[in-house]
Design a protein around this nucleic acid. Structure first.
Length: 912
DNA sequence: CCCGTCTCGTAC
DNA sequence: GACGTACGAGACGGGT
C-alpha cells in the first residue's frame, strides 16, 4: 500500500489571500469574519480531498523572525497588517484547533521555512508531500516528492507544471525571483527585469544567478527585448539581486522537533466549535453542528445568540417549505422567477438554485447544487425541477423575469421548456428607453426603485478569485438570489404602468419583443456548425502570408516594427519615410486607416499596399480563423452565439461571443470563412434575406412616387436612381454611374453629407452636392420626409419606427453644431433601420411558429439583420423555402412589396 | 496585472 | 467635423 502524502497548509498565505480576495463579511456587531470563513472552507475541502493524510496547518508566529534580524539593514517595510485582518488570526487558530487539525506556529521561524524544512525532511525519507499554498515562491520546493496545490483556485503544480508555468524549473525559481522580484513578498529584484527577461536570462546562460553574473558579456547576445542595455542594468543592481536571492530563499534546515506521525488530525471539539461558530455567526455550520449534537443526544442551548436579521426572504431546504411555495406559485397571478448557475454562458451553465416571488418583498431561494464544505443538505435538483416543471411549462401561468432568455436556456438543458414569460424587465426598460446604456437589474433597481441591490461581486468576490455560485455560502446566496426574484417583480410593477402610458410601446413589448424571447433562445441553442479543420488550415495559410508581408514591410521601412501598432506605423510612414499626412484621427494622430493607406498606395507608395494586405490577412486570422474554432461548445460541437435584445439604440439585435453578424463577405478571401459555416450531413443551409429592405421602408415612409414606382415594378433601384440623377434612360446607365447611385442611396439612409458622399465615391465635393440636389429634385417625397423627420425629432425629442418603437434624441436640441448634426443623422436613420429590425423580429416569430407546428426538420441558426439562415434536411428544402419566404414577405404590409431572396448550399457562402 | 480608451476593421 | 448601427482584436497608458 502506498503511503498517504503529508499535507502541509500555508495558513498565513491563505489568510492574507482570503482577506484580500473574498468579500468582507462581518457579524451583526461588525466583527470581521470573512477571512476566517474563507480559510476554514478551504481547509475542509482539502481535508476531504486527503482524508487519511497527516496534516498540518502552519502559521507565522508573532514577533520577529531570524529573517528580520538577518535583513535588519534592508528597510523595506511591508505595510502594517490591517486591523480587520489581525483580529481574525486568533479566531482562526482557535477554529483550526477545535476542528482537531494540527497547528504549527514556531517562534522565530516563518511559516515558509517550517514548511520548507518539513517538506525536505519528509521527501528525504521517500514520502510524498503536498503543500497547499497560494504563494508562488513555494515553487522552489517542488521536486519529485513534493508538489503544490492551490486549494482556492484548484490548480496544482508538479515539476513539469512549474517549468510550464514559470518557464524555468523549480531549481531556478529562487534565481528567477531574485531577478524579477516580487512585490507581494517585498523582494526588490532588478528593476526593469520582468518574467520574460528573467526567463530569457536563466535559460540563455547556465548556472542560475551566479552564472548570469559570471557571464554578463553574454547577455547582449541573448534574444531578449532590450538585451543591449540589460548587462549594465544587471551590473548596477547586482547587490539588490543577490539580496533578493537570499530573501527569496526558503530555509529547509531550521531546527524543528516534529515527527510526521504526530501530525494526524484528531477528533473535533464540538462544544468549542459551537461556541466559536456562534461568536462568528456562521449560521449554516452552526445549524449543522446543533443538528448533529441533537442527534447524538447531547443537550445544547438553542441558538438565540445568533442574530437573525428580519427578512421575508427564505431559503428553502425542506420538503414542507417547498410544498408551501409550490402552493403559492399555483395560486399566483404572476410569478417572478430567476435561476442561479455556475456560468454567465447559458450554454455551459449548471443550475445551482431557483428563486421565486409572487408578492413584493417576499421571496424564496431554493438551492439545489451548492457544494462547499459544510453546506447543509439541499433538496434534490431533479425532484425540485420535476415538481416545478408543470408550472414553468404552462403558457397560461404568466411569468416575469429579468433577461429571461438566459434562464430559459439554462432550464432547457434540464428538459424544461419555459412558457408563459409574459414580461421581461430588461426588455421593459429597453422599450421604454433604448438609449439607456444599462438594462441590468442592479441599474434598474437603483434607477426605478431607489434600491441598492446586493451585487454579485459582493458575495462572490472578483477577479481570478471569484467564486462560482455553487461555492457561495447559503447565508449569502439565499438573500442575494431571493432578492433577484423580488426585485424583478417590483421592477415590473413599476415599469409596466409606464409602458401602458404609451400604447405604441406596450405593443412593441408584447407583440414584438416578448414573443421573440423564446425564438432567440431556440436559435442560440441550435447553434451553427463550423468546420474547425477548414478554419485551421486557413489559419496556417494566413499565418504564412502574414510573415511574408511582414518581411516585405520591414524591408520597405528599413527597420523592424510592430505592424499592428498605429502609433509605430505612423512614425515609420510619416516621420521616417515622409509620406504626406492625408487625415488625422479624432485624437490628432496621423491616421493610418485603410482609406488613407489606399490613397497613398494609389499614388504609388509601396509600403501602404503591403500594410493594407497585412491588415486584412491578420484581421481574418485573429478575429475569425483563430478565434471561431475555440468557441465551439464541446457538448454540442457547435458555435452558440448570444443574441442581445437590449443593446442597440435602433431596435436591431446584436450578437457576441462570438459575433456572427460580422462574418466577412465582401472579399473572396473573406468569403472563405463563410465556407466553414456548414450544414450537418444530410442537411443544407437555406439563406433568406430581405432585398433592399431599408430603401423599401424609405419609399413607404416617404411615400415618394418615384421610389414607390421603382419598387412596385421590381426595378433595379440603383439603376433607376442613376437614370434619374444622371438624366439617362435606365439602359444607358454605366457601371460607374450605377455604383455612384448605390452610394447615394446608402448615404441617404445614413444621413450622409456631400462631403461624405464625395469621399465615398471619389469625386469633388461640389459634384457630390450636385448629385444630391438632383436626387432630391427627382425624389421630392424623400426630401420632404427627411425634413419632416428632423422637425419632429426636434419637437418631440424622439423618433419612431412604423410599429411605434421610440428612440430618444436629446442631443437634437444641442447648441453644439456637430452634436446636433449627429443627432439629426440618427433621426433620419433610426426609423428605417428600426422598422427593418421590427419587421425581421416579426418574421422570426412567424418562422419559429411555423417550424414548431409544421414539424419540419429545419431550424434557424443565424440572424444577420436582414437575413435568416436555416439548416434544413435536404429533402425538405423546397417545402421550407416555400413557407419561410412568404412568412418573411408578409411580416409587414408596406406600400411596396417586401421581396425575399433565398439561396441554398452546403455552406453559408454557397447559400448566397 | 488589470482595466478603460483608442484605432482599426468586419458586418448590415 | 463630415455615414447610421453594432462587436472585437491589439496596442497603449494609467492606476493598482
Amino acid at each position: 500500500m502506498s503511503q498517504t502524502p503529508l499535507v502541509l497548509v500555508d495558513g498565513s498565505s491563505y489568510l492574507y489571500r482570503a482577506f484580500h480576495a473574498l468579500p468582507p463579511l462581518t457579524t451583526s456587531s461588525g466583527m470581521p469574519t470573512g477571512a476566517v470563513k474563507g480559510v476554514l472552507n478551504m481547509l475542509l475541502a482539502l481535508r476531504r480531498q486527503y482524508p487519511d493524510s497527516p496534516f498540518a496547518v502552519v502559521f507565522d508566529a508573532k514577533g520577529p523572525t531570524f529573517r528580520d534580524e538577518l535583513f535588519e539593514h534592508y528597510k523595506s517595510h511591508r505595510p502594517p497588517m490591517p486591523d480587520d485582518l489581525r483580529v481574525q488570526i486568533e479566531p482562526l487558530h482557535a477554529s483550526v484547533r477545535a476542528l482537531g487539525l494540527p497547528l504549527l506556529c514556531v517562534e522565530g521561524v516563518e511559516a515558509d521555512d517550517v514548511i520548507g524544512t518539513l517538506a525536505r525532511q519528509c521527501a528525504a525519507l521517500g514520502r510524498d508531500v503536498v503543500i497547499s499554498t497560494g504563494d508562488k515562491d513555494m515553487a522552489q520546493l517542488v521536486c519529485p516528492h513534493v508538489s503544490l496545490v492551490n486549494t482556492m483556485t484548484g490548480s496544482s503544480l508538479d515539476v513539469a507544471g512549474v517549468k510550464e508555468k514559470f518557464g524555468v524549473g523549480p531549481e531556478l525559481i529562487i534565481d528567477f525571483l531574485a531577478l524579477m522580484g516580487d512585490k507581494v513578498d517585498n523582494i526588490p529584484g532588478v528593476p526593469g527585469v520582468g518574467e520574460k527577461t528573467a526567463c530569457g536570462l536563466l535559460n540563455g546562460i547556465a548556472g542560475g544567478l551566479q552564472g548570469v553574473y559570471g557571464h554578463l558579456e553574454q547577455v547582449a547576445g541573448l534574444a531578449i527585448r532590450g538585451a543591449k542595455s540589460l548587462a549594465a542594468k544587471l551590473e548596477e543592481h547586482k547587490e539588490a539581486a543577490f539580496l533578493s536571492y537570499e530573501l527569496a530563499t526558503i530555509k529547509t534546515d531550521v531546527p524543528l522537533n516534529i515527527e510526521v506521525d504526530a501530525l494526524h488530525p484528531g477528533e473535533a471539539d464540538r462544544e468549542a466549535l459551537i461556541e466559536l461558530y456562534r461568536q462568528l455567526e456562521f449560521r449554516s455550520w452552526l445549524d449543522e453542528l446543533l443538528r448533529e449534537a441533537r442527534q447524538s443526544g447531547e443537550v445544547v442551548a438553542t441558538a438565540e445568540a445568533v442574530a437573525i436579521p428580519e427578512s421575508r426572504y427564505e431559503t428553502v431546504l425542506d420538503e414542507a417549505r417547498f410544498a408551501a411555495w409550490l402552493e403559492k406559485l399555483e395560486q399566483a397571478e404572476l410569478i417572478a422567477f430567476d435561476t442561479e448557475t455556475t456560468s454567465l454562458d447559458a450554454q455551459q451553465a449548471e443550475l445551482v438554485g431557483l428563486s421565486f416571488a409572487v408578492v413584493p418583498h417576499e421571496a424564496a431561494y431554493i438551492p439545489v447544487a451548492h457544494s462547499y464544505m459544510g453546506v447543509p443538505e439541499q433538496l434534490d435538483r431533479e425532484r425540485v425541477l420535476a415538481a416545478l416543471k408543470p408550472i414553468l411549462e404552462d403558457a397560461a401561468r404568466a411569468k416575469v423575469g429579468q433577461h429571461a432568455k438566459y434562464d430559459m436556456n439554462v432550464l432547457a438543458h434540464y428538459g424544461i421548456e419555459v412558457r408563459g414569460v409574459a414580461y421581461d424587465t430588461m426588455l421593459e426598460s429597453y422599450v421604454l428607453d433604448s438609449t439607456a446604456t444599462r438594462h441590468d437589474m442592479d441599474s434598474l433597481a437603483l434607477k426605478y426603485l431607489g434600491h441598492g441591490t446586493i451585487r454579485f461581486e459582493d458575495i462572490a468576490g472578483k477577479g481570478a478569485k471569484q467564486l462560482t455560485f455553487d461555492q457561495i455560502a447559503l447565508e449569502q446566496a439565499g438573500p442575494y438570489a431571493a432578492e433577484d426574484a423580488d426585485v424583478t417583480l417590483r421592477l415590473h410593477q413599476c415599469l409596466w404602468p409606464k409602458l401602458e402610458e404609451v400604447p405604441g410601446l406596450t405593443r412593441v413589448l408584447t407583440e414584438i419583443e416578448m414573443p421573440l424571447v423564446p425564438v432567440l433562445a431556440h436559435i442560440e441553442r441550435n447553434g451553427a456548425l463550423v468546420d474547425a479543420k477548414l478554419l485551421g488550415e486557413q489559419s496556417v495559410e494566413l499565418g504564412e502570408k502574414m510573415q511574408q508581408l511582414e518581411r516585405q514591410a520591414f524591408e520597405l521601412a528599413g527597420e523592424e516594427f510592430n505592424l499592428a501598432s498605429p502609433k509605430q506605423l505612423g512614425a515609420i510612414l510619416y516621420d521616417k519615410l515622409g509620406l504626406p499626412i492625408r487625415s488625422k484621427t479624432a485624437k490628432g494622430q496621423a491616421s493610418t486607416a485603410e482609406s488613407v493607406l489606399a490613397e497613398l498606395a494609389e499614388e504609388g507608395y509601396a509600403l501602404p499596399q503591403v500594410l493594407m494586405d497585412y491588415r486584412s490577412v491578420s484581421k481574418l486570422k485573429s478575429t475569425y480563423t483563430d478565434k471561431l474554432p475555440q468557441q465551439i461548445n464541446p457538448r454540442t460541437g457547435r458555435i452558440h452565439t448570444s443574441y442581445h435584445q437590449a443593446v442597440t439604440a435602433t431596435g436591431r439585435l446584436s450578437s457576441s461571443d462570438p459575433n456572427l453578424q460580422n462574418i466577412p463577405i465582401r472579399t473572396a478571401e473573406g468569403r472563405r470563412i463563410r465556407q466553414a459555416f456548414v450544414a450537418a450531413p444530410g442537411y443544407k443551409l437555406l439563406a433568406a434575406d430581405y432585398s433592399q429592405i431599408e430603401l423599401r421602408i424609405m419609399a413607404h415612409l416617404a411615400q415618394d412616387e418615384g421610389l414607390l414606382h421603382a419598387f412596385r415594378n421590381d426595378l433595379d433601384v440603383h439603376r433607376a436612381t442613376a437614370a434619374e440623377v444622371f438624366g439617362l434612360a435606365p439602359e444607358e446607365v454605366s457601371g460607374e454611374q450605377r455604383r455612384r447611385a448605390k452610394a447615394i442611396n446608402f448615404g441617404l439612409i445614413y444621413g450622409m453629407s456631400a462631403f461624405g458622399l464625395a469621399k465615398q465615391i471619389g469625386v469633388e465635393r461640389k459634384e457630390a452636392q450636385a448629385y444630391i440636389d438632383r436626387y432630391f429634385a427627382r425624389y421630392p417625397g424623400v426630401l420632404a420626409y427627411m425634413e419632416r423627420t428632423r422637425e419632429q425629432a426636434g419637437e418631440q425629442g424622439y423618433v419612431e419606427t412604423l410599429f411605434g418603437r421610440r428612440l430618444y434624441l436629446p442631443e437634437i436640441r444641442s447648441k453644439n453644431g456637430a452634436m446636433r448634426k449627429a443627432a439629426e443623422r440618427t433621426a433620419i436613420n433610426a426609423p428605417m433601420q428600426g422598422t427593418a429590425a421590427d419587421i425581421m423580429k416579426r418574421a422570426m416569430v412567424a418562422v419559429d411558429a411555423w417550424l414548431q407546428e409544421s414539424g419540419a426538420d429545419a431550424r434557424v441558426i443565424l440572424q444577420v439583420h436582414d437575413e435568416l439562415v436555416l439548416e434544413v434536411r435536404e429533402d425538405q428544402i423546397e417545402r421550407v423555402r416555400e413557407a419561410v419566404c412568404p412568412l418573411m414577405s408578409t411580416a409587414a404590409e408596406l406600400a411596396v412589396p417586401l421581396v425575399v431572396e433565398a439561396g441554398v448550399g452546403a455552406n453559408w457562402d454557397e447559400a448566397h
